[in-house]
Design a protein around this nucleic acid. Sequence first.
RNA 1: GCAGGGAUAGUGAAGCGGCCAAACACGUCUGACUGUAAAUCAGAUGGCUUAUGCCUUCGGGGGUUCGAAUCCCUCUCCCUGCACCA
Length: 416
Amino acid sequence: MGTNKAPQPLVNESLINELTTRAIAEIYPSPEMLAKELKSGRRLTAYLGIDPTMSDLHVGHVSQLLKLRLLQKLNHRIILLVGDFTGMIGDPTDKSATRIKLSREEVLANAAGYKQQAGKIIDFNDPVNPAELLFNSKWLSQMGFAEVLELASEVTVQQMLERDMFQRRLKNNKPIALSEFLYPIMQGQDSLAMDVDIEVGGSDQIFNMLVGSTFIRRHKNKQKFIIAGELLADPSGKKIGKTEGNMITLNDTPLNMFHKIMLWGDAITPHALELCSELPMTEIEKIIHDLASGKLSGKDGKMFLAGTIVEGLHGEKIAEQARHEYLDLTSKSSNPLVTELQTAKVTKGQNIVDILVESGLVSSRSAARRLLLSNAVRVNNQTINVDWLVPTSDKKLVLQVGKKMHANFRNLSIIE
RNA sequence: GCAGGGAUAGUGAAGCGGCCAAACACGUCUGACUGUAAAUCAGAUGGCUUAUGCCUUCGGGGGUUCGAAUCCCUCUCCCUGCACCA
């Protein structure tokens, strides 16, 4: 590493404009100052930190990764930081209770897929300006108590307590672990250790990111810029993807991703296009206009959204294929024979209740019976009841529970 | 350390000796309607070889009782006062 000569930063008005205005919640100290810095010709170092608390990155990360991508295009140095050390403490942001600490093993396991998934958006293999992957345990695990105290003295308890989520917990008499106060300090130390100029993050990270700016100002005597992106939400402010089932990870298959996006409310389309795609803002304006005038239906708008997001991650060809498979899967008449269905082996005469449990589609026999009673189970698109047994004639059957997710389908291959 | 209060299913929260597998709300799942969207309406939501049957659940353990989520003892954890405090 580091044998290449650092590339010369580009000054591209439209990219810089995109970077400083699109999907932005806040830029510190100001968008203008950031734009000015980006045009200074100095090569800047920017980073996005992600705690490996989950095994996969999700759509929420896309807009921030796109910010990094823009910076990469402008030839600035970009870093994806895996918070393998901080992840073991747990960020208190937006948590009403102390977060459960993760074990070292869990953290590393979760971090494993990040590079590959983030690689769909930022380029780790660029010959001239590759993105870098760093782990913050590298410096945080080396710190002594004296250094920690030194940094801790630069942040006041009052500043910490200003945070809503701490206030809420104080009011509700919920505990606040002292280690949670140290979280922003560790994140600030990340900025110091990498000597960054820009930190990219969600608007929920503003407090933590500002601590880093404070440290940088005091210790490096320069301004660290903060690009705080908007969080994906529908117009009523409801956050997207908070529930497990609707969580779209960058590891989802294209079809799955396409389908999950189609389950979002229609109202999200413009916001999601702005955040999660690279579609030019002028195009998005047009979509908004067409949606408002009725020229584009809510459904078609969302189809477009799903196609655009999947294309951004997997390319045009695969996106088109996902679209076809989705249409195929959802058309009422066709047999839902799609690629990549999981297979379960069954024997002739086997009872449907057993099959449902053994194939992992439902968690208990009681649950299976309940679903059967409510007409939720289909074989080859035919609703079946509790008494159904594997027939002697067919060789392959498609079993479906409910009509929602791709994951609720199984190919049944019958053995003698 | 002392004195009080609390721990109930995914979450919040009722229940305070039998009618409790446990109200209600949220969430989740399913059905209808749709665009396998949203909204709305309806049902379900511990498990079991489907049973107006059995088993396991109300922080852990032990007891009282014909019978305990409910009473007593004890342990663990949390909260609130008071005391102590580098």
